[in-house]
Design a protein around this nucleic acid. Sequence first.
DNA 1: CCTTGACCTCAACTTTACTTGAGGTTTTAT
DNA 2: ATAAAACCTCAAGTAAAGTTGAGGTCAAGG
Lengths: 155, 155
Amino acid sequence: MAQKAKKGATQSLSVGEVAARAGVAVSTLHFYESKGLIESTRSEGNQRRYARGVLRHVAVIKAAQRLGIPLASIAEALSSLPDGRTPTAADWKRLSARWKAELDARIAGLIALRDHLDGCIGCGCLSVAACPLRNPDDILAKQGPGAHLFRRDGS
Amino acid sequence: MAQKAKKGATQSLSVGEVAARAGVAVSTLHFYESKGLIESTRSEGNQRRYARGVLRHVAVIKAAQRLGIPLASIAEALSSLPDGRTPTAADWKRLSARWKAELDARIAGLIALRDHLDGCIGCGCLSVAACPLRNPDDILAKQGPGAHLFRRDGS
DNA sequence: CCTTGACCTCAACTTTACTTGAGGTTTTAT
DNA sequence: ATAAAACCTCAAGTAAAGTTGAGGTCAAGG
């Protein structure tokens, strides 16, 4: 549990330190790196060393995930940052605004779905062609949840 | 594509007919059956035969899925019906009311998340300990989305 | 020195919800 | 009667987001 304090040289962080401070597992950091979400340099002994900024980087990733954004989309968004730099406040503002729009859309979809459900509770027809709860061609499918709750594509 | 009209004897449906009418793939019906979500009898030649009610059964499953309910929960809910009978309007009313509550909770969680996001867009701190967007211990995590967007457990 | 604890790689496993394919049988239509 | 369409089973593949394990290396304290 307790992370042993390394010597003062905290200019770069080890994977364990990042994991502890960012609140994720070491394996997750490995995984993120394999997906191009974060970067690291290596020590002489081939161990990962991270710049302090990686903590913020991970923070952005986790925040986006809580918004329901798939990692692939997050990776894409982060790759739009110059030099793969650590997201600045301005970057975060831009990214979060973009993701907020998706969140809004999802909320709207769920609310529409709920409204239909209210009607369908009394109705009970569930017709493939006519029931808005069933019909995937109506507005709900345009932005709503479903089997593909959080669509991976940008369509 | 076009489903050839079978002879008048539509007392029981073949898997292809059910697939066409319910709007799902044949493989999906096999899969649902393997999960105990639907049932079938067999013809002399070992082919699946479904009662008409299976269409409604599939309708309920699909509707629940659109609400974001995982198949395992749907299976559990359906198994609470006497004899695994086809859901009646009353059954659907009960089930959909239950699922509506989950939907409401999810919407509330997303809205709370959005509100926090609004604040965080200007803030940008994303502190692991203090930022509500990051902190999994706050109210959002109690009912909200996240990595585990639609929780599988009943907790 | 030498034992831990932290780290390394790579492969395989987990879950959900299905789809795809191979190899073989049944039904239906002509 | 026969050919085509539909069906059968079972195994394996897919995608997302990681986790777990095996086998081996690195670093720091006593």
